[in-house]
Computed example of a mutant assay.
Amino acid sequence: MLIDIFHDTVCPWCRIGKKHLFDALAKWQEQEVHIRWHPFLLDDTVPAEGYEFRNFMQNRKGIKAEELQHLFDYTQREGEAAGVKLDFEKIRLAVNTKLAHQLIALAPTNIKNDVVEAIYRAYFEEGLNIGDINVIVAIGTAYQMNATELKLQLNDRDVVDAVVAESAFARLNGINSVPFFIMNNQVKVNGSHSVEVFLEALNSTALLDIPAKI
Protein backbone atom coordinates (compact mmCIF):
# COMPACT_ATOMS: atom_id res chain seq x y z
CA MET A 1 0.00 0.00 0.00
CA LEU A 2 1.17 3.50 -0.81
CA ILE A 3 0.41 6.34 1.62
CA ASP A 4 1.10 9.92 0.56
CA ILE A 5 1.44 12.33 3.49
CA PHE A 6 1.16 16.07 2.99
CA HIS A 7 2.48 17.98 6.00
CA ASP A 8 4.46 20.89 7.34
CA THR A 9 7.16 20.47 9.95
CA VAL A 10 5.92 23.32 12.18
CA CYS A 11 2.35 22.01 12.24
CA PRO A 12 1.57 20.36 15.60
CA TRP A 13 -1.51 18.64 14.18
CA CYS A 14 0.70 17.09 11.49
CA ARG A 15 2.84 15.55 14.21
CA ILE A 16 -0.25 14.27 16.01
CA GLY A 17 -1.73 12.90 12.77
CA LYS A 18 1.55 11.19 11.92
CA LYS A 19 1.59 9.51 15.33
CA HIS A 20 -2.00 8.31 14.94
CA LEU A 21 -1.30 6.91 11.47
CA PHE A 22 1.86 5.09 12.54
CA ASP A 23 0.10 3.70 15.62
CA ALA A 24 -2.65 2.43 13.31
CA LEU A 25 -0.07 0.86 10.99
CA ALA A 26 1.56 -0.90 13.95
CA LYS A 27 -1.80 -2.51 14.74
CA TRP A 28 -2.78 -3.21 11.14
CA GLN A 29 0.20 -4.90 9.43
CA GLU A 30 -1.94 -6.39 6.65
CA GLN A 31 0.25 -5.25 3.75
CA GLU A 32 3.66 -3.78 3.12
CA VAL A 33 3.31 0.00 3.30
CA HIS A 34 5.32 2.62 1.43
CA ILE A 35 5.24 6.19 2.74
CA ARG A 36 5.78 9.24 0.53
CA TRP A 37 6.27 12.60 2.27
CA HIS A 38 5.13 15.78 0.54
CA PRO A 39 5.85 19.37 1.57
CA PHE A 40 3.02 21.78 2.30
CA LEU A 41 4.49 25.18 3.13
CA LEU A 42 2.05 26.86 5.49
CA ASP A 43 3.82 30.21 5.13
CA ASP A 44 6.72 30.54 2.72
CA THR A 45 6.91 34.32 3.35
CA VAL A 46 8.68 33.80 6.70
CA PRO A 47 12.29 35.03 6.28
CA ALA A 48 15.34 32.89 6.93
CA GLU A 49 15.89 34.50 10.34
CA GLY A 50 12.29 33.76 11.36
CA TYR A 51 9.79 35.78 13.37
CA GLU A 52 9.14 35.96 17.10
CA PHE A 53 6.85 32.98 17.58
CA ARG A 54 4.01 34.22 19.75
CA ASN A 55 3.58 37.57 18.03
CA PHE A 56 3.56 35.80 14.68
CA MET A 57 0.94 33.30 15.81
CA GLN A 58 -1.27 36.00 17.33
CA ASN A 59 -1.19 38.01 14.12
CA ARG A 60 -1.70 34.95 11.94
CA LYS A 61 -4.76 33.80 13.86
CA GLY A 62 -6.03 37.25 14.81
CA ILE A 63 -6.36 36.41 18.50
CA LYS A 64 -5.19 37.82 21.84
CA ALA A 65 -2.32 36.43 23.90
CA GLU A 66 -4.58 34.63 26.38
CA GLU A 67 -6.57 33.03 23.55
CA LEU A 68 -3.34 31.84 21.96
CA GLN A 69 -2.25 30.31 25.26
CA HIS A 70 -5.56 28.45 25.54
CA LEU A 71 -5.01 27.14 22.00
CA PHE A 72 -1.48 26.00 22.87
CA ASP A 73 -2.71 24.32 26.06
CA TYR A 74 -5.42 22.44 24.17
CA THR A 75 -3.05 21.34 21.41
CA GLN A 76 -0.47 20.23 23.97
CA ARG A 77 -3.07 18.09 25.75
CA GLU A 78 -4.07 16.51 22.44
CA GLY A 79 -0.42 15.79 21.76
CA GLU A 80 0.02 14.16 25.15
CA ALA A 81 -3.04 11.99 24.53
CA ALA A 82 -1.49 10.88 21.23
CA GLY A 83 1.90 10.26 22.82
CA VAL A 84 3.87 13.18 21.41
CA LYS A 85 5.40 16.16 23.20
CA LEU A 86 4.56 19.68 22.04
CA ASP A 87 6.44 22.20 24.18
CA PHE A 88 5.25 25.61 23.03
CA GLU A 89 7.25 27.27 25.81
CA LYS A 90 10.46 26.11 24.12
CA ILE A 91 9.58 27.50 20.69
CA ARG A 92 11.00 30.99 20.17
CA LEU A 93 10.79 31.37 16.40
CA ALA A 94 8.25 30.92 13.64
CA VAL A 95 10.45 29.60 10.86
CA ASN A 96 10.49 28.95 7.14
CA THR A 97 10.30 25.19 6.62
CA LYS A 98 11.81 24.88 3.15
CA LEU A 99 15.15 23.59 4.49
CA ALA A 100 13.42 20.97 6.62
CA HIS A 101 11.47 19.69 3.63
CA GLN A 102 14.63 19.69 1.52
CA LEU A 103 16.29 17.43 4.09
CA ILE A 104 13.32 15.06 4.01
CA ALA A 105 13.45 14.97 0.21
CA LEU A 106 17.19 14.26 0.24
CA ALA A 107 17.09 11.59 2.97
CA PRO A 108 17.38 7.99 1.75
CA THR A 109 14.13 6.05 1.92
CA ASN A 110 15.29 3.78 4.75
CA ILE A 111 15.79 6.73 7.14
CA LYS A 112 13.19 9.18 5.82
CA ASN A 113 10.52 8.45 8.44
CA ASP A 114 13.12 8.80 11.20
CA VAL A 115 14.36 12.10 9.77
CA VAL A 116 10.81 13.45 9.69
CA GLU A 117 10.35 12.54 13.35
CA ALA A 118 13.73 14.05 14.25
CA ILE A 119 12.73 17.35 12.65
CA TYR A 120 9.44 17.40 14.55
CA ARG A 121 11.30 16.59 17.77
CA ALA A 122 13.87 19.32 17.17
CA TYR A 123 11.18 21.97 16.76
CA PHE A 124 8.47 20.90 19.20
CA GLU A 125 10.60 19.43 21.99
CA GLU A 126 13.93 21.26 21.77
CA GLY A 127 12.72 24.56 20.32
CA LEU A 128 15.47 24.54 17.67
CA ASN A 129 15.38 26.77 14.60
CA ILE A 130 14.71 24.25 11.84
CA GLY A 131 15.05 27.10 9.35
CA ASP A 132 18.78 27.22 10.15
CA ILE A 133 20.96 25.19 7.80
CA ASN A 134 23.32 24.16 10.61
CA VAL A 135 20.44 22.68 12.62
CA ILE A 136 19.16 20.82 9.56
CA VAL A 137 22.62 19.49 8.67
CA ALA A 138 23.08 18.30 12.26
CA ILE A 139 19.83 16.33 12.02
CA GLY A 140 20.93 14.77 8.75
CA THR A 141 24.39 13.82 10.01
CA ALA A 142 22.81 12.16 13.06
CA TYR A 143 21.42 9.68 10.51
CA GLN A 144 24.76 9.22 8.74
CA MET A 145 24.15 11.70 5.93
CA ASN A 146 27.40 13.36 4.81
CA ALA A 147 27.62 16.94 6.15
CA THR A 148 29.66 18.41 3.29
CA GLU A 149 27.51 16.84 0.60
CA LEU A 150 24.33 17.76 2.43
CA LYS A 151 25.25 21.45 2.69
CA LEU A 152 25.88 21.55 -1.04
CA GLN A 153 22.56 19.86 -1.79
CA LEU A 154 20.63 22.15 0.58
CA ASN A 155 22.06 25.17 -1.23
CA ASP A 156 21.12 23.76 -4.63
CA ARG A 157 18.45 26.01 -6.14
CA ASP A 158 16.88 23.06 -7.96
CA VAL A 159 16.25 21.28 -4.64
CA VAL A 160 14.66 24.42 -3.16
CA ASP A 161 12.52 24.99 -6.24
CA ALA A 162 11.32 21.38 -6.19
CA VAL A 163 10.00 21.77 -2.63
CA VAL A 164 8.21 25.02 -3.48
CA ALA A 165 6.75 23.57 -6.66
CA GLU A 166 5.49 20.42 -4.91
CA SER A 167 3.81 22.49 -2.20
CA ALA A 168 2.14 24.66 -4.83
CA PHE A 169 1.03 21.56 -6.76
CA ALA A 170 -0.73 20.22 -3.65
CA ARG A 171 -2.73 23.43 -3.31
CA LEU A 172 -3.60 23.43 -7.00
CA ASN A 173 -4.98 19.92 -6.52
CA GLY A 174 -7.35 20.93 -3.75
CA ILE A 175 -5.30 20.30 -0.63
CA ASN A 176 -5.87 23.37 1.53
CA SER A 177 -4.93 22.13 4.98
CA VAL A 178 -2.63 19.58 6.58
CA PRO A 179 -2.13 16.89 7.62
CA PHE A 180 -3.63 15.23 4.57
CA PHE A 181 -3.26 11.53 3.78
CA ILE A 182 -4.00 9.63 0.55
CA MET A 183 -3.95 5.83 0.49
CA ASN A 184 -3.31 4.11 -2.83
CA ASN A 185 -4.24 7.32 -4.66
CA GLN A 186 -7.87 6.81 -3.65
CA VAL A 187 -8.84 6.91 0.04
CA LYS A 188 -8.30 10.31 1.65
CA VAL A 189 -8.04 11.30 5.30
CA ASN A 190 -8.00 15.02 6.00
CA GLY A 191 -6.78 15.91 9.49
CA SER A 192 -5.18 14.36 12.55
CA HIS A 193 -7.91 11.81 13.20
CA SER A 194 -7.87 9.03 15.76
CA VAL A 195 -6.07 5.71 15.38
CA GLU A 196 -9.47 4.10 14.82
CA VAL A 197 -10.25 6.39 11.87
CA PHE A 198 -6.92 5.52 10.27
CA LEU A 199 -7.56 1.80 10.81
CA GLU A 200 -10.91 2.15 9.05
CA ALA A 201 -9.24 3.97 6.16
CA LEU A 202 -6.54 1.30 5.88
CA ASN A 203 -9.14 -1.45 5.83
CA SER A 204 -11.27 0.40 3.26
CA THR A 205 -8.24 0.86 1.02
CA ALA A 206 -7.33 -2.82 1.27
CA LEU A 207 -10.89 -3.84 0.37
CA LEU A 208 -10.81 -1.67 -2.75
CA ASP A 209 -7.74 -3.61 -3.87
CA ILE A 210 -6.40 -0.64 -5.83
CA PRO A 211 -2.80 -1.15 -6.93
CA ALA A 212 -0.37 1.41 -5.54
CA LYS A 213 1.35 3.60 -8.11
CA ILE A 214 4.76 3.92 -6.51
Rank of each mutant, 00 (worst) to 15 (best):
D4R: 03
F6D: 06
D8M: 11
P12D: 07
C14Y: 00
C14N: 02
R15I: 04
I16M: 08
K18P: 04
K18I: 01
K19A: 06
F22T: 01
K27T: 01
W28R: 07
E30T: 01
V33I: 09
V33P: 01
V33G: 05
R36N: 06
R36E: 05
W37G: 06
P39W: 08
P39T: 08
F40R: 06
L42D: 03
L42K: 07
D43N: 13
D44G: 02
P47G: 05
A48F: 00
A48P: 06
E49Y: 02
G50I: 03
E52N: 05
F53R: 07
F56K: 00
K61Q: 13
K61M: 15
K61C: 05
I63T: 09
E66M: 08
E66P: 10
E67C: 12
E67H: 08
L68K: 08
L68D: 02
Q69C: 06
F72Q: 03
D73K: 14
Q76K: 15
R77M: 10
E78K: 09
E78G: 11
E78D: 13
E78C: 14
G79A: 11
G79Y: 03
A82Y: 01
G83M: 10
G83Y: 10
K85C: 05
K85W: 01
L86K: 07
F88V: 04
I91S: 10
I91T: 02
L93Y: 00
A94I: 08
N96W: 11
N96H: 06
N96M: 08
K98E: 00
A100V: 13
Q102H: 11
I104A: 08
A107V: 03
P108S: 00
N110K: 14
K112C: 02
D114M: 12
V115E: 00
V115D: 03
E117Q: 10
E117M: 07
E117D: 13
A118F: 05
A118G: 03
A118L: 09
Y123A: 06
E126T: 04
G127W: 04
G127Y: 08
G127E: 04
N129V: 08
I130P: 05
D132G: 07
I133Y: 05
V135D: 09
V137W: 04
V137G: 03
I139F: 10
T141K: 15
T141C: 15
N146W: 02
E149T: 13
L152E: 13
L154D: 07
N155A: 14
D156A: 15
D158F: 14
V159E: 04
V159K: 00
V160W: 06
V160T: 13
A165F: 12
A165P: 02
S167R: 03
R171E: 11
N173S: 13
N173P: 00
G174T: 14
G174D: 08
I175A: 03
N176S: 15
N176K: 13
N176Y: 15
N176F: 14
N176Q: 15
V178R: 08
P179M: 14
F181T: 02
I182G: 02
I182W: 01
M183S: 01
N184K: 12
N184P: 02
N184Y: 07
N185C: 12
Q186H: 15
K188E: 12
G191Q: 07
E196H: 13
E196V: 14
E200R: 11
E200L: 12
A201T: 04
S204V: 15
T205F: 03
A206N: 11
L207D: 15
L208D: 14
I210E: 15
P211K: 12
I214N: 14
